[in-house]
């Protein structure tokens, strides 16, 4: 939902200049979300007689959201405002969407889309980490990677490897990372998590890999 925002960094120089980009692109994203919701609820029954159908309320609120989004865009065109505080979240967004598509995808088409999103995300991530805005790229990217690593490994590999890897990946999110400290600290934290969640409050987690198979590895759920 954020891609259109990135276009803004280059856009203002040529042609139409938007005086308050923070409002304008914020409103635009809401409008797009509203249309997405309208599209997603297109098959749902609306009013029949005096009673609401399942689709009535979603369409109602989606329409209100679109109107509000347009109003916010209008404010963005009519007022002077500060520039958008800089941020860089295109790579993490693509990678997360890729995971969600892959996990829920039953058709080949969806899996191809997922692969494309993943490739796009990885390329953007690498470019971002080599580019001038790498400090902005770093935080959201590695936090996302940490979450993805945990999600993908918790079921096949168990809590211990999953948390250890996820903590190490998360630690890379700051340029101040100290690697040796991180490796030790991750082990300490993992042990703490096991003690607290498994022995302390008895959550039914498996700790180590058991019956690894391609099926569990690829289910992603």
């Amino acid at each position: 939902m954020s891609q259109e925002v990135h276009a803004s960094s280059g856009a203002p120089q040529r042609g139409l200049k938007i005086s308050n980009p923070r409002e304008f692109y914020g409103g635009l994203a809401l409008v797009l979300l509203g249309f997405l919701a309208l599209w997603a609820s297109r098959d749902l029954a609306g009013m029949h007689g005096i009673s609401f159908g399942p689709g009535t309320a979603p369409r109602m609120f989606a329409s209100i959201l679109i109107v509000l989004g347009v109003a916010i865009m209008a404010v963005g065109c009519l007022t002077e405002g500060v520039a958008v505080e800089r941020y860089e979240i295109s790579a993490p967004t693509l990678i997360i969407l890729a995971y969600m598509f892959a996990a829920s995808g039953r058709t080949t088409l969806i899996l191809i889309v997922a692969a494309a999103l993943l490739v796009g995300g990885v390329i953007l991530a690498i470019l971002g980490m080599m580019g001038p805005r790498r400090t902005l790229v770093r935080g959201p990217l590695f936090i996302t990677l940490s979450i993805i690593v945990f999600a993908a490994t918790i079921r096949p590999f168990g809590l211990v490897p999953a948390s250890y890897l996820a903590i190490v990946a998360a630690a890379a999110a700051t340029p101040e990372v100290r690697w040796i400290e991180t490796l030790i600290w991750s082990a300490v934290l993992t042990a703490f998590c096991v003690l607290l969640f498994v022995y302390g409050i008895n959550l039914p987690f498996q700790l180590w890999p058991t019956n690894l198979s391609w099926e569990t590895l690829l289910s992603l759920r």
């Binding site: 969600m100 979450i147 999600a151 918790i154 809590l159 998360a170 934290l189 998590c193 759920r221």
Partner: peptide
């Protein structure tokens, strides 16, 4: 912050045992 991230991830996972939920939290 890595500690917070992992606590949140384990917490979300413990609700439904769903890895999908963790990624959605990330989203």
């Amino acid at each position: 912050f890595p500690a917070i991230i992992i606590f949140c991830a384990i917490g979300v996972y413990s609700i439904n045992n769903s890895a999908f939920d963790i990624v959605m939290t990330g989203l």
